[in-house]
Design a protein around this nucleic acid. Sequence first.
DNA 1: TAGATTGTTAATCGATTAACAATC
DNA 2: TAGATTGTTAATCGATTAACAATC
Lengths: 239, 239
Amino acid sequence: MASNISKQDRNQTQPNDSTESTQKINYAGVSPAVVKRLPRYFRYLRELLRNDILRISSGELSAMMNVTASQIRQDLNCFGGFGQQGYGYNVKYLLGKISDILGVSANFRAIIVGAGNLGQALTGSTMFEHRNIDLIALFDVSPALIGKTVGHCVVQSIDELPAFAAENHIDIAILTVPRDVAREAADNIASLGIHAIWNFTSVELSELGSRGVLVENAHMGDSLMQLMYKINIEGEDRD
Amino acid sequence: MASNISKQDRNQTQPNDSTESTQKINYAGVSPAVVKRLPRYFRYLRELLRNDILRISSGELSAMMNVTASQIRQDLNCFGGFGQQGYGYNVKYLLGKISDILGVSANFRAIIVGAGNLGQALTGSTMFEHRNIDLIALFDVSPALIGKTVGHCVVQSIDELPAFAAENHIDIAILTVPRDVAREAADNIASLGIHAIWNFTSVELSELGSRGVLVENAHMGDSLMQLMYKINIEGEDRD
DNA sequence: TAGATTGTTAATCGATTAACAATC
DNA sequence: TAGATTGTTAATCGATTAACAATC
């Protein structure tokens, strides 16, 4: 039927769909530099879709993101051929692929350990729903917080965590406790068989790697210091 | 007098103190890769000092930090010779130097724009005093928040910001508003002559660079996604 | 078909590591 | 002085960019 397929529609037939399913990707072989850029692609593609832009070329995206078109094509090709020669990339399709790669489709379940200011602030953020993460519980030691409703969870006593972990699969523990109890809390989390910690404390937890726990540090202070450095050198640098 | 100077004391005489003051460092020439690692040195050195360790060699530090000793020496040497052959580095002195480089000694003054959950949580954090940053005011639009005491500040109406900025020097504006008002708020901040924004929104503000505003993104979601990626590939990767 | 833009290889660039002479 | 460890140069490695043939 449809003989004059417009470029806008052409992309409904997805590129390389035949080879994709057969060709296994070596994710571990993807360079850390590439992985670090993926969330940024995710953000930009989501923004494009918000603005109803359905198609984009590496050249256009490169102008938006201030990176080279070459890098974009190279990066995406680590995971498969998501584009189409002469056409570019279908935004919706590409966003879907990147979402898959980043585990957005995996429907992870997370808990927050430490329901203080930061824990509560995170609970209120849209970050988790945007990434298909279910925030299923909050834990704290403070009697003043236990029982309090935060978002659509009720803060539970940390003593209930072992039983809770036994009954519920937890993919990610978000660690937002004070630094002096951070290591102890992290140890407990690891003992319960939770395999990933998103660490907001300034305590180094990388040693948990040997126990099979993935640790990702939020280290907001490091980001702040990068900014401080830039402010600082503006004055000092005179060449 | 003191003829048998112990190694512990020897470092009181600081290395290269003569050349240091004369030799100008080209901060802009320091590679971004090095700059990104500085906050991590800051953290480790602070921790060493906490544990009363006054002296460290690049070899020891390398074992702690899981980087090569070569990289540590190379990184530090971008800013000057902070060590002493045959001895290593004086922790206190080195921490001081890195603090200077990172602007910890510059006594920056910051405000928070957006006194919601995240803004309030940040106010409560020790991050700022640890870095000698004075948090001098919080602003918000919400009548429910204006007048509320958070930390040792009272939330002010955003309408008062222009007058406040005219009377007080502000080094950093911390942007913790909802995404739909982020660009507008950032524009206002820039118009007031504030030269640095620490951006917690997912909105891209890099275009403010052309107006002389330094923007550093906290992008917590990107950190979360790195973790999600790692969890995700653990299952998928079979080579 | 002609035009556009990808996927991919080869060339360049920058960052990391190794090695060692300088020196405390 | 001998031992240790830095500062620094040279070698290696990895990441980015340029170029272009493949192809939609």
